[in-house]
Amino acid sequence: MQTENVHLLLVEDNSRFLSELVDWLNDYGYRHIEKASSVAQATEKLSDPYDVIISDMRMEQDDSGFAIVEQVKTRNLSSVVIILTANDTVIDCRNAFKFGA
């Protein structure tokens, strides 16, 4: 699949990180990028198809990026979910794999 054909949803509550991620992905040729700054906003957007969802693990307003993984599973979506985090605990990594990210 060509990068310009990949539909992405980025979920990040830090506007600076979100902007940097969008710029970085644009540099690599990704053109179909939707953004959400909370799990609630992302959940609303899940009615549209996304190939890849990239979500922050910990967000201030919502419980976590794991809620996105749960929504993808509940809705039986085929999106690949990637969880980003600055946390380096083994427990967080295990939970990400356990939830299917």
Rank of each mutant, 00 (worst) to 15 (best):
F66W: 14
V39K: 06
A42M: 10
F99N: 13
S79N: 08
A86Y: 04
R16I: 15
S55V: 04
I33Q: 04
T85A: 05
I82Y: 07
L9C: 09
V6I: 14
I91D: 11
K35P: 08
E20K: 01
G65V: 04
W24R: 02
D27W: 05
A67L: 09
N87Y: 15
E12G: 07
I82K: 07
R58W: 10
G65I: 07
S15K: 15
N26E: 10
T89G: 07
N26G: 07
D92G: 09
T43S: 08
W24I: 03
N26K: 08
A40E: 14
L77Y: 02
D88L: 14
H7R: 13
I33K: 02
V11D: 09
D62R: 07
V72C: 02
H32S: 15
K73F: 06
L25I: 04
V39Y: 02
N76M: 05
S78L: 09
Y30Q: 01
S78P: 03
A101M: 08
S47D: 03
Q71E: 15
F99S: 11
S47T: 14
V39W: 03
I82M: 13
W24L: 09
I82P: 06
H32Q: 13
V69T: 15
M1G: 00
E4H: 03
L9G: 02
A101N: 13
Q41W: 01
N5P: 00
V69P: 12
C93I: 06
D51N: 13
S19G: 02
I91P: 05
F66V: 08
V39R: 00
W24G: 03
F66T: 04
